[in-house]
Simulated scan of single mutants.
Amino acid sequence: MRAHVDPGICIGCGLCVSSVPEVFRLNGDGLAEAVADGPDDAVQNAIDACPVSAIRKA
């Protein structure tokens, strides 16, 4: 599944990065970004766990 992180909402907590590091990383501004597709269940868990709902399916 491909994900998108809204940089206007992301607070850079890193939860998505720690849970699915093959899909998410923190950029130079300290905000998360999706850099690859990942397993549907893992990406959905990151979407569900995001404390500010900044991640969505792309």
Score class of each variant (00 low, 15 high):
M1S: 10
R2S: 11
A3D: 00
H4K: 14
H4L: 11
V5A: 09
V5N: 04
D6R: 15
P7C: 04
G8A: 08
I9C: 06
I9P: 01
I9Q: 12
C10M: 12
C10S: 09
C10N: 05
C10T: 09
G12F: 05
G12K: 10
C13A: 07
L15V: 07
L15P: 01
L15C: 04
C16Q: 00
C16G: 00
C16N: 00
S18Y: 15
S19Y: 08
S19D: 13
S19F: 12
V20R: 01
P21E: 14
E22G: 15
E22S: 14
V23K: 06
F24Q: 00
F24G: 00
R25Q: 14
R25M: 07
R25S: 06
R25H: 13
L26W: 10
L26D: 07
N27Y: 04
G28F: 02
G28Q: 04
G28N: 05
D29W: 13
G30D: 02
G30S: 04
G30N: 03
G30T: 01
L31M: 03
A32L: 05
E33Y: 09
E33K: 09
A34Q: 06
A34K: 08
A34C: 15
V35I: 15
V35N: 05
A36S: 15
A36M: 08
D37T: 05
D37Y: 04
G38M: 02
P39S: 11
D41T: 03
D41S: 04
A42F: 00
A42Y: 00
A42E: 02
Q44A: 11
Q44P: 01
N45I: 01
N45Q: 13
A46G: 12
A46R: 01
A46I: 08
A46V: 09
I47S: 03
A49G: 12
C50F: 05
V52W: 14
V52S: 10
V52P: 05
A54R: 01
A58T: 10
A58M: 09
A58G: 14
A58L: 11
